[in-house]
Nucleic acid binder design. Structure first.
Length: 432
RNA sequence: GACAUCGUAGCUCAGUUGGUCAGAGCAUCGGAUUGUGGUUCCGAGGGUCGUGGGUUCGAGCCCCAUCGAUGUCCCCA
């Protein structure tokens, strides 16, 4: 016998989970379209070389390589995210009207160690919104507004969109006297600072052959806990940092005009993001009260990625909402009411004498837009009511011989147990 | 990839220093005088105690290995 099991880090979803997941996806889709983004889809499978070298060493190792024609030109992998395949798609389609705005909701795969409690899986859905062909910070602001609108629309409380800029991180690296090769190391250290003591971070940097004067300079800068304005004067000499800070200021200005409440977004110097392709503003959404749950959202500007496929050098920025993260968060925050069905009414089956009339009733209900189920067997009522109850269908309609004789229907409200003999029009009113 | 804990029915767990130890509750299915669920009562199915070795007269309980799960770190959605 073969032991039935799901692949590590991949999950089955039963109706009561799928109904919630679909609601989350519907919310996103509605918001994405409201902002003028259009749907696209790319294959789950890509040539391996399309994917490698874009994310960085760490992430490249997590790409799911397919054990199929390895070592040939046909080497393939499951896509690791949607940004790189999308960039490939843009590079292959030179006639897109710019700026090109798309959304894309598909599963992606990462050969990671799953941690379900933190919302971390090997197969999960990313829901990306990206805009290619504009360098305006209006797009960054728009993407942050979309993120806010989706999470707020799902009634998720106290989320925080953290915003930083790779240009600032580059500037800091430059400020402490290191060249750009060390940006990654510096980012990792800064990122750790809110969890680990400075001594440990300093030791790590030493181990990476970074000079003490640089480490001390970094320490001085970070321990001051500067806000954006203070950072601006501290890094007055560093041109790239000034550029980055100005961009963040511009984004904040737009967010204010767009009416995004201030408590939902913040500048965070410690935000680094691991993927290599980011070049400008970056963002990530966390639940500060539930730090163990991984980020619900992440994104940033990645000018240059499309050019790496030989296409035009198009400026691009995008953000990704994690369906599984949001779903996990909502589960743990008890935001998911118990829903087992989308059926509104169950029509009982009372056998041959009333079958035609019942089926016609079912047809009419559906024609009026009411989600209707018809019990397939003419079993005892107890069983049919029990089914209705277990599936939490709110109403049961009964059309037996007694009702048929009077040309009426009995409607039972399952929650209260009350029932009435009514005609079809009244039935429609009650179910509407 | 590093470290820690844990693996008994679909789920939550009992199982005492190795000797009826294969159990309970919930869930599922069926029944309690023929058109009424969610309460109650009765009954049934379901586990070679993760897997493979070893110690022993005898192991769910001890030892080794292996696989899997969970948590923390790293990184991410």
């Amino acid at each position: 016998m073969i032991q039935p099991r799901t692949f590590k880090g991949a999950r089955d979803f039963l109706p009561e989970q799928m109904l919630h997941r679909e609601r989350i996806l519907d919310t996103m889709r509605t918001v994405f379209k409201k902002y003028g983004y259009a749907p696209v889809e790319t294959p789950a499978i890509e040539y391996l070389d399309v994917l490698t070298g874009k994310y960085g060493e760490e992430a490249d190792r997590l790409i799911y390589k397919l054990n199929y024609k390895t070592g040939t030109k046909d080497e393939a992998a499951l896509h690791y995210d949607l940004t790189v395949p999308f960039s490939r798609m843009v590079a292959m389609n030179n006639d897109l009207a710019m700026p090109f705005k798309r959304y894309q909701m598909q599963p992606v795969w990462r050969a990671d160690r799953p941690q379900p409690h933190q919302g971390r899986f090997r197969e999960f859905y990313q829901c990306d919104v990206d805009c290619v062909g504009s360098s305006s910070m209006l797009i960054e602001a728009e993407l942050i507004a979309i993120t806010y609108e989706v999470l707020n629309g799902l009634d998720i409380p106290d989320f925080l969109i953290k915003i930083n800029n790779r240009k600032i991180l580059n500037g800091i690296t430059q400020y402490i006297g290191l060249d750009n090769n060390f940006v990654g190391d510096v980012c990792v250290s800064i990122d750790k600072l809110d969890k680990v003591e400075w001594n440990e971070v300093a030791k790590e940097l030493k181990d990476k052959n970074i000079h003490t004067t640089s480490i001390d300079k970094l320490h001085d800068l970070l321990t001051q806990k500067l806000n954006l304005t203070q950072l601006k004067s501290a890094l007055a000499e560093i041109e790239i940092a000034q550029e980055g800070i100005a961009e963040i200021e511009e984004i904040f200005y737009y967010l204010q005009i767009l009416g995004i409440p201030e408590q939902y977004f913040t500048f965070d110097i410690a935000l680094a993001r691991g993927l290599d392709y980011y070049t400008g503003p970056i963002f990530e959404t966390k639940l500060p009260k539930h730090p163990h749950i991984g980020s619900l959202n992440g994104g940033g500007r990645y000018n240059g990625l499309i050019a790496s496929f030989g296409g035009k050098d198009l400026p691009s920025v995008g953000t990704s909402l994690g369906l599984d993260r949001i779903f996990t968060a909502m589960q743990q925050l008890n935001l998911l009411s118990e829903v087992k069905t989308s059926t509104q009414v169950l029509v009982g089956n009372f056998g041959a004498d009333t079958l035609d009339a019942s089926l016609k009733l079912v047809k009419e209900l559906r024609a009026n837009g009411i989600n209707t189920e018809f019990y397939p067997e003419a079993t005892k009522m107890k069983k049919q009511f029990s089914y209705c109850d277990k599936k939490q269908i709110p109403f049961m309609a009964i059309l037996g011989s007694e009702e048929l004789a009077q040309n009426k229907i009995t409607l039972k409200v399952m929650k209260t147990g009350l029932q009435n003999l009514i005609d079809f029009n009244e039935l429609l009113e009650k179910l509407a």
